[in-house]
Every structure is written in structure tokens, then in C-alpha cells.
Design a protein around this nucleic acid. Structure first.
Lengths: 229, 229
DNA sequence: CCAAAAGTGTTTCACGTACACCCATGC
DNA sequence: GCATGGGTGTACGTGAAACACTTTTGG
């Protein structure tokens, strides 16, 4: 007990909503708490912000510590400061959401922490604290942002088929899209480049693989451009 | 010095970017600091979050204390936690942006705090802390959000002319809009209702006054609707 | 040869956009 | 009567949406 202040201070934490796409389902990573409060319940990964690290750094550190994930898309979501959201004391939490490429690393590798697991976002268990509110807001942000920013790619491996990309959008937006219209629209943006590689080991006609052209997106962004799906 | 913690804690503050529309210009309210650090420089209104109030409440309280404004549109913007953003110690600030109806209360009434003043957003003085970053982000948020949410009305009195509404959009988006197309599009949303009142004391043909239909917006919102201008 | 997903064009309709003139009012 | 902003309609082109069949590959 060595740090003293003139006025009482809230504790500052980060919580991360980590999304991944597994087959057709949008999933979120949860960890089972092994400490009170809410011991044994599922919660978003997160923890305290150190006084000598930025909030972004804290989010990345906690993510790596608790789930082994690094080098992921991570963006600040909202700061939750309701009274009583933590039963112990006043805790203000800066929430982030992350998008990870589940198809690269298998789900296994990403969840070797025994108490971490992926849940379909449409079927999550009861959550600790106000983490349901945080998850809801993250889902809404994702649904909104995916329509005007090219973040869908963050859920896919570097090379992907257009059908995979379409499934990303369908999973996030919870609606079916027309294949021909989707392909035409995506290709017209000029932001996906065709490679000369095709799928392997599939029991049907192999689809062509594409890559997202991040450089071109940066150019277009400057000239006031809007990715739209 | 009565409050002790096991680990050092950041101080938590709120900062408010208050927008108003004065004639044709989008303006932001700044206050001149009378305490170090940055004494004498302009800054966003803000202050410390009390341990027993929510962050939203803190923002409203600071806004009222420092500028006399209450009952305004207020929304959380982003949380700024860079190291060194406050030279004294680690301070994390939750930024908000507010939209006020400048035409109701005259500018005078809103700025009777002697050290508060409105500046055109395109011509603000040098600001304390990282407040330029906060202002930039607030402007970008406003530009984005005004396109899909009916928040432009928050800058106008309850009853307004369609030309006033158009000026709101032109000021925020920094572009000129076609009068006929704008009126058609706005009226087609069904979210502005014609009153039987017209302007008074104008040196030309008096324009009809309209009101925003908040009830109808709530209905439409539920059925998945998007205000678009 | 069958199953499974890849890949491909056209038509239709709604909406965005560009554009110019008369009207009402106060001074 | 003139200056000032209020108010109105149409034509054109682009883009969104709906829609079905052939192709390729592995088993």
C-alpha cells in the first residue's frame, strides 16, 4: 500500500472483444475466470492498465497474456464507467475489439490457454460484469464499420477466395448476399488483387485466391474514398 | 493524502468538445486556463471524474460548471491515454462531444464564464495538452455521424427552416449542397414535420418552420432505418 | 456420373445529380 | 421597384437488385 492520492481514484482496466470467423460462424473468445469476483464465469479477456503503458499497449499485452494472440487488428471501442459494474470498487474499463485470422492459426493454437474458448456470437453464455453490454456494442460497431471500411479482410488469411470474403460479410451482417453482385462490387473497388494461386484439397472446383491491396487502399483513402459493400 | 492503493493509478478526466452553429460557421467552445499547466492557453472544457459519478455524469457536470451549458446532446468520443499527455502525471481522459443550440440562447448567455469563448473550428488557437487531437477526432466523428444519424437538428432551435438545416450540413461537411435536392431528400425521410409558423423579422420572404419528429425516428430506427443526407 | 461450389451477364428500377426560374416580403 | 432569400420540377445517368445456368473438379 504505497501509492497515495489526495482524492480517491477509479481503477482503470481494458477488456477485449476478440472476433474470429470459423467456417460460417462469427465467434468471440471468452475466458473462464479463476479468481473472484465472478469466479468460474465466462468473461472477456482483459486486465488492469499499468501506469506506465498506454491503453492500447495494455490491451495488446492482456490479449497476448490471456489468449496468446498477437499482431491482430485492434481498435478502441468505448469506455464503460457505470457505478457498480465491478462489485469490488470503482473500475472504469476501456473496451477494445479485435479481429483475428482464425483460419491461419487453427483454433486450437489460439486457445491453448486451457480456460479460453470460442463461442458463436449468437450463442454466448452468461457473462461476468457488464460484459454483455460490451459485446453488444462491439457487434454493433463491427456491423457498422464493416460496411465502409475494409476490415473484413482481417478475419481471413492473407489469400482468400471471394466466397470466403462473402461469408465474412454474411456472418457479420446476418444477411445473405447475392454472389454475382457481391463479386462485381468487390472487384470494382480495385482493392482485391487476383493471384495465380487456387484452392487446394477441395472436393469441387478450386476457387481462385485473392489478396487485399492495402497500399492501394491507403492511396484511395487519402483521395476521400469509401469502401462500400 | 488519504487514499492509498497497492499499485499506482492514473488520474481520470473528461474533456468536452462543444460544437455550436453561429450564422454560417461551425464553432467550438474553448476556455482559457487560469491554472498550470498550460496556464493562459486555450483548452477544451473538462476536469476530473469523481469516484462516485459515472463518466457521462462527470462530462455533464464539468460542462455545466465551466460553460453554464446543460441539457445538450452529449456523446462519448474516445479515450485518450498517451503517456506524457499531461506533464504532471499519468492522466487518462475520456473525451466527449456536445452539440448545442446556439441560436436559442444567444452566444452571450452561453459564455458568461469570462474565460470561455467560441472559435470557428477552422481557425482555433494553439491548444493545451493533446486537445488538438481530440478536436480533430471530434470533427471527424461529427462529419461521419451526421450522414447517417439525425444529429444535425441538435445544432438548431426546435423550429427551423430547411435552409438553416442545409447550412448545418454544409458547415459540417464543408461542401455545398443543392437546395432542391436537399429539400426533397429531407422531406422524403418523413422526419421533419411542417408547422404552420413562418419566420419573423426577416427582410425577405419568410421561410416556413419545421420540426424534427423524434418519435417517428425512434419507430423507424427499430425497423432498421438509416437517416441519410 | 454425380455432388458441390465456382464462375459469369442482363434487365429493371430507384435514386442521385445537375440545373433555372418565379415568388413573397421588407425596405 | 429592388434586393434577398424562399420555393419549386424535370431529364439523365449511374448504380443497386433480382435472377439461372454452365463449368470445373474430386470422389
Amino acid at each position: 500500500m504505497a501509492f497515495e492520492y489526495e482524492f480517491p481514484r477509479a481503477a482503470l482496466t481494458v477488456d477485449c472483444v476478440v472476433f474470429g470467423l470459423d467456417d460460417e460462424d462469427l465467434k468471440v473468445m471468452l475466458i473462464q475466470r479463476n479468481l473472484p469476483p465472478f469466479k468460474g464465469e465466462w468473461a472477456l479477456p482483459g486486465g488492469f492498465v499499468h501506469v506506465d503503458e498506454t491503453i492500447d499497449d495494455a490491451a495488446r499485452r492482456e490479449l497476448e497474456e490471456e489468449t496468446g494472440l498477437s499482431n491482430v487488428f485492434l481498435e478502441q471501442l468505448y469506455t464503460f464507467g457505470q457505478l457498480g459494474r465491478d462489485p469490488r470498487e470503482r473500475v472504469v474499463s476501456v473496451a477494445y475489439y479485435a479481429l483475428v485470422k482464425l483460419m491461419d492459426h487453427s483454433v486450437q493454437a489460439a486457445t491453448d490457454a486451457a480456460d479460453a474458448a470460442w463461442f458463436p456470437v449468437m450463442d454466448v453464455p452468461s457473462l461476468a460484469f457488464d460484459h454483455h453490454d460490451i459485446l453488444d456494442m462491439a457487434l454493433n460497431r463491427l456491423k457498422g464499420k464493416v460496411r465502409y471500411a475494409p476490415i473484413g479482410f482481417e478475419l481471413l488469411p492473407k489469400r482468400f477466395t471471394l466466397s470466403q470474403l462473402q461469408h465474412v460479410y454474411e456472418a457479420i451482417l446476418e444477411s445473405e448476399l447475392d454472389k454475382r453482385n457481391f463479386r462485381r462490387k468487390v472487384l470494382k473497388t480495385g482493392l482485391v488483387i487476383e493471384t495465380d494461386e487456387v484452392q487446394k484439397d477441395v472436393a469441387h472446383r478450386a476457387a481462385r485466391l485473392y489478396e487485399f491491396d492495402a497500399d492501394r487502399y491507403k492511396e484511395l483513402e487519402d483521395t476521400g474514398f469509401n469502401f462500400e459493400v
